[in-house]
Write a protein that binds this DNA or RNA. Structure first.
Lengths: 125, 125
DNA sequence: CGGTATCCTCAGTGATACTG
DNA sequence: CAGTATCACTGAGGATACCG
């Protein structure tokens, strides 16, 4: 492995619990804070704010304040954000094709070995 | 968003701090426990064990015990593991091409706004 | 060699309340 | 509407020691 450190930095972005969901939600164009909050099921106001700030800092998206009444803030992917979204597309596609297989593998494994608690193993929401 | 729940499950795998690094290290064939530990800089013995167990349970890799002296355990990607690795390849490539850009974006952002502490912002190892 | 078992810490997260 | 501030909790993950 030639660049273990750098690779881990990307995982800091991608591995973020909410980041990729935000990026995906923005793929079809700008969205407002409340729109994002509604679109991303289960995210708290605080975590949406934090995630957006991090992504803005990383240059993945832009934050634009419209000083009208009522206040209006829109978020939009940057060029780099769009390329990131494209780079993650295969992964999201992989997920939809293989998740059933993963469930089967887990079930088989848990049959062989006593099903110790796995945090990642909780079925679904 | 049509399948927010499923997408989040993949993030449970991909977002794992070490999982993708393990998968990447296995891309060229089977590796032994200690080889993986040496190849993945900074991983603790415990986290390597936990990560390998999770990936085995998910059907991403296989664990093979060779009962010789000295003991010998090798890990290898399954067919599904190889497809996952392929699906993540664009992302790792994206990282190498854009990390400099991200660093620049962060620096610019921190110049505009007071550099509050961002966990993800710690430079490198 | 390749783990398990234990303990402990702190970063990530949710809940709640307040504000420009 | 779109945040910020504060608190409290949980569990991911490191350190260490021991085991087949």
């Amino acid at each position: 492995m030639q660049d273990p450190c750098r690779a881990r930095e990307v995982l800091g972005i991608v591995g973020d619990k909410w980041a990729l969901l935000v990026v995906r939600t923005l793929k079809d164009g700008p969205r407002r804070f409340t729109e994002l909050k509604r679109a991303i099921d289960g995210i708290s106001q605080r975590m949406l704010t934090v995630t957006l700030r991090d992504l803005e800092r990383d240059g993945i998206l832009t934050r634009t304040v419209h000083n009208v009444m009522p206040p209006h803030v829109s978020y939009e992917l940057t060029e780099m954000g769009r390329t990131l979204r494209e780079a993650t597309a295969p992964l999201l596609e992989w997920s939809t094709t293989h998740l059933a297989h993963i469930d089967a593998a887990r079930a088989a494994y848990d049959t062989r070995r006593p099903p110790r608690d796995h945090s990642r193993g909780t079925p679904l929401s």
